[in-house]
């Protein structure tokens, strides 16, 4: 099932895992000197999985966009990006709704917009906060799944030196949000 837009309905209403309605101000999780942590609700997220048996060259050419080849890398910008996070799986991340191909032949496209919550971590202190939780060292064009706080997997996207996006299972958004809020109140290591 693919959704191209986030449906609005008189019958049912959407609400983000941190309690934000579509169009409302995203939840500010933490704000202090050199650090800003904010929810990014209602991103469009989809996984594009390539079948093991596919003819890779043909399959990659069949899509209406260029998928990044670098392992754990992404292309695009903060508003719209494509990331390769498994040898045969890519993720689409878009602030505005974007047309998705249907699953066909070599590709299985799965809408994950409801499944993942997104948090943006920005500021000069952002790398130090992440260093407390992860051991991975990501370059600016990096996107990877890694272990956060020794307990939960997250998808981590480095948008700039001091700008990160974290994607986490929607049922754990509360946990991540609390953890980052507490971390923002702790003094960072000197230098």
């Amino acid at each position: 099932m693919n959704q191209n837009t986030l449906p609005a309905s008189p019958g049912l209403r959407a609400i983000s895992s941190l309690g934000t309605a579509p169009g409302a101000t995203p939840q500010l999780i933490a704000q202090s000197a050199g650090l800003r942590v904010v929810e990014e609700p209602f991103l469009q997220l989809a996984s594009l999985r390539l079948s093991r048996k596919a003819d890779r060259a043909a399959a990659l050419g069949a899509l209406p966009f260029d998928l990044p080849a670098t392992p754990n890398g992404w292309t695009g910008d903060a508003a719209s990006s494509l990331a390769r996070f498994e040898p045969n799986a890519w993720m689409l991340i878009s602030v505005a709704p974007r047309a998705l191909p249907e699953s066909a032949d070599a590709w299985v496209v799965t809408d994950l917009s409801s499944r993942l919550a997104s948090v943006r971590l920005q500021g000069a202190r952002a790398p130090a906060v992440l260093a407390a939780a992860t051991s991975v060292s990501l370059p600016v064009s990096g996107f990877t799944r890694t272990l956060f706080a020794e307990t939960v997997p997250v998808l981590l996207q480095r948008l700039a030196d001091d700008d990160y996006r974290l994607l986490i299972d929607v049922s754990l958004a509360g946990y991540l949000s609390s953890w980052l809020a507490d971390a923002s109140r702790l003094t960072a290591p000197a230098k």
């Binding site: 099932m1 449906p7 609005a8 049912l12 959407a14 409801s114 499944r115």
Partner: peptide, 30 residues
């Protein structure tokens, strides 16, 4: 339901007439 996709499975763990109704997570509360 309106524009929201819904999937319904008629299965039962209680032993009564039962449905398991699925909507995308953000509509769960609604």
């Amino acid at each position: 339901i309106g524009d929201v996709p819904v999937r319904v499975a008629r299965v039962s763990f209680t032993g009564e007439l039962g449905y398991e109704i699925s909507v995308p997570w953000q509509y769960g509360l609604s």
